[in-house]
Design a protein around this nucleic acid. Structure first.
Lengths: 235, 235
DNA sequence: ATGACTAAGTGTACAAAATACACTAAGATT
DNA sequence: AATCTTAGTGTATTTTGTACACTTAGTCAT
């Protein structure tokens, strides 16, 4: 049992949790994993997350953990907040899942949260062997999650929306190639509003951050759209 | 010596660092403390910060640490980012200052950073007995600091500016009573620009977030200005 | 090849917001 | 009473945001 005297530093466990938002033409979802612990607890849903290892920085940790748990790679993850209520991981089931039982069972767990945004069709998550499965859950229908993960998802969603509202386009979070219609739909889905096509494009043009590619959309049964990439400044 | 096998969770020390910005009519400064360790190291400057204790959450920790080190109280502190490079605290002097030597000397230190903004004249920081002294350092003349604190200050300043640019007024960060001229000067100092008095006031009026008090500025040798407080929504 | 279907791509008129700019008013000091 | 200092206020112009509908390019079915 760790020392619980209040005037001592806590030497907590530190974990990383990843809120991966996925979008398609209509919906915004969050990637969740089903936790199956070795104990006989009922499975529960939670964000992909695990403890930070000794020789990695936080960004590296997030990348590694997301890959280990869901096989997703090459995704930009943005740190947005640490969560550290002393009792935020307070039950056996949660601790078992986090490997905390084996390492440092009585210490609290402080977590550093990351978010990202991906095109669902471009990334096919697969559950790690030891996890149950991974699912895309609609952001408007998120059930009760393990740990304090509902709070973390809500905060991440708020940040994502701020990013889109204030900075206009969250380029770090975008796919490398995209059509203007895709970009508009993404904004509409994230912000929950309808936008005017011409006005949306006018604003993009003025911001001067898009570069047309020598490539058009393929695999559609109508006029294919021009593909663009992000480019700061002008051509 | 702690276990350094890379595949193990790190059970790091976790600290909090506070970037307290202070403003007057002309300048924006940062509160720094001079570290005097018990060893025979030369003093160095750093942000007020220390390890998180077992039974406190991160916000509580920040509040406590700022008070212990500088006697500042009643200040809104906003968490903005965790910093966790594995070697960000890598010398004996830094470790000694952080009490890490006594508790968990070989583990890395992950820090959660907070910032805030105060009227310098309203808060008189005093050094804790064990610290050297506290100083207000101009943000444009920050010397080399301990740990990775230069990086943390730069990031905090960027966030503070974003807050002022995008959200227009960072009310959480303001004094409770203020004149419109004070508010304008603050914006000018933080953003490093000149603003037009009438346009600035027009925008404030439209935002409908200020409430005039039954009180005017005192102690000035000219026409006293109306004092306002923040108020969401209308009177 | 023709016609029908689907989404891509484009411009203009109006409303709202941001900017540039200079004088009068209130209190303090002599 | 005169002077000094900052408070407080409005209008004209430019820029930005909004509302709105038709033509074009490619695919598919006949």
């Amino acid at each position: 049992m760790a020392d619980k005297h209040p005037s001592r530093p806590s030497n907590p466990n530190v974990s990383v949790d990843c809120v991966v938002f996925g979008f398609d033409e209509e919906q915004l979802k969050v990637l969740l994993i089903e936790q199956r612990t070795s104990g006989d607890f009922a499975p529960q849903l939670a964000l992909p997350g695990d403890l930070v290892l000794q020789d990695e920085n936080l960004d590296e940790s997030a990348t590694r953990i997301l890959k280990e748990l869901t096989h997703l790679e090459g995704i930009y993850l943005k740190q947005f907040r640490a969560f550290g209520d002393p009792d935020r991981v307070n039950n056996l089931k949660d601790k078992e899942w986090l490997r905390t039982v084996r390492e440092n069972p009585d210490a609290r767990v402080i977590t550093v949260a990351y978010y990202s945004l991906v095109k669902m069709e471009a990334y096919r998550p697969e559950a790690a062997s030891f996890a149950g499965k991974v699912i895309w859950q609609n952001v408007s229908e998120i059930p009760e999650l393990g740990f304090d993960h509902n709070k973390i998802v809500n905060e991440a969603l708020a940040r994502l929306r701020e990013e889109f509202e204030f900075k206009n386009i969250a380029f770090e979070l975008l796919p490398k190639k995209f059509t203007l219609t895709m970009l508009q739909k993404l904004h509409e889905i994230v912000l929950g509003v309808q936008l005017d096509k011409r006005n949306f494009r006018k604003k993009l043009k003025k911001s001067d951050t898009l570069q047309p590619l020598d490539e058009k959309q393929s695999g559609v049964d109508h006029k294919p759209a021009q593909l663009f990439k992000y480019s700061s400044g002008k051509k």
